[in-house]
Amino acid sequence: MIRICTSLAEAGYAVTLIGRRFTGSPALVTRPFKQKRLFCFFRTGKLSYLEYNLRLFLCLLFIKADGVCAIDLDTILPFYFISKLKGIPRVYDAHELFCEMKEVVTRPRIYKVWKWVERYAVPKFKHGYTVNKPIADEFKMMYRTEYEVIRNVPVWEPLEIPDKPEKFILFQGAVNEGRSFETLIPAMQYVNAPFVICGNGNFMIQAEFLASEYDTNHRIEFKGRILPAELKELTKKAWIGVTLFENNGLSNYYSLANRFFDYIHAGIPQLCVDYPAYREINNKYNIAVLTSDLRSEALAERLNELLNNKNLYYQLQQNCLQAREAINWQQEEKKLLAFYKNIL
């Protein structure tokens, strides 16, 4: 969201980004747009969603705007009702197929609620964009929408590969269900390298328990949420990135995670799932080792290959440096600005 809001602000739009404030949230960094965090008493569960949506609606009620953008399904209702109330355009930014996430699709009652929200609200958002064509095609098939594809990729900047005295493996992003931690953490029993996890999420407690259960605490460091600038520098120093998702719903299968591109721009090869969007890019640029086998033994074998096969590693690294020249925010930004120019 920082990239999108920055591009819009630098193009002359007055942008306000609204999010949640959690205990321990890092301090806000000065940006070229306004930022507002909403405090909620309930941190998890159904009441947390209800409270946040109510507070978001009330916040939006007192903000003067010529248009609004909902980020994913869990914020879509307040933005819909506000846009109707104020008679302004509304945009849906769909990072994923929300109802197909593991934590939703595997819980029938929760799935039923969110699917009702999706069926009610998404068709009412004529304007929208998402991260890849397979997801855009799914929305078109379900709701006859014509959403744009705007990938959330890093800004191109000059890169100098730093010295790496220690080979460590990095995961960055939400520590949520469906990210293969159940097999990735046990795999570290067979990999002689540190594993650094940057992020937090609904699987954090279970992930820490797995590290203890499989006696991999000495290899795994849980850093929690860190500031983007710090994460960017840490990513450059990593030896391998990890982008894994269980194939338990279309959201994972059609995903195109931000970290996939963050690793490319840091010039680090990665172990990545062999799903359509990743395969398409890897077929063109060959920047990752793809796997369709998420068993612990298979993951350990692939990670060890990247750690020990110097020729493979440095070829993938060089390919990353070439790919980042073509896949960057400077290219995607053009589509974003054209999109909003046609609406506002």
Rank of each mutant, 00 (worst) to 15 (best):
F139G: 08
D262C: 07
P269T: 09
A207E: 03
I82S: 10
E148P: 01
R151H: 10
I2L: 05
I18Y: 13
I161A: 04
R179P: 01
D137L: 06
N304R: 11
R21M: 13
P26F: 09
R31D: 01
M101Y: 08
Q172S: 14
N328D: 06
A174K: 04
Y13Q: 10
L312W: 03
L73P: 10
I150D: 01
V153D: 00
T130E: 05
N248K: 09
D293G: 05
W329Q: 08
K133A: 12
V153Y: 02
L231Y: 00
P276F: 07
C272E: 04
I264T: 01
L50C: 14
F33V: 06
Y254S: 01
N258W: 08
A187D: 11
E182V: 11
L17I: 00
K126G: 08
A174S: 07
A174V: 04
L271R: 13
T291H: 08
A70Q: 12
A94L: 07
K223A: 13
L28V: 03
F339R: 11
L17E: 01
S48V: 03
W114I: 02
T23C: 04
F171I: 00
Y120S: 13
L54P: 01
A65Y: 06
E118I: 02
E280A: 15
R302Q: 14
E177C: 04
G249N: 09
V29I: 15
P276I: 05
V105W: 03
E233K: 14
F245T: 02
F62W: 14
N308L: 10
D215A: 12
E177G: 04
I343T: 13
A338M: 15
A187H: 11
T130F: 04
I205V: 15
F39Q: 09
I150L: 02
A266Q: 06
P123H: 07
I71M: 09
D262F: 01
L303P: 00
Y214R: 01
P134G: 00
D137H: 02
F260M: 11
F168E: 03
N309A: 03
N282L: 03
G241M: 04
L294E: 03
K86Y: 04
N132P: 03
Q270F: 00
K84T: 07
F57L: 15
Y80R: 14
I110C: 06
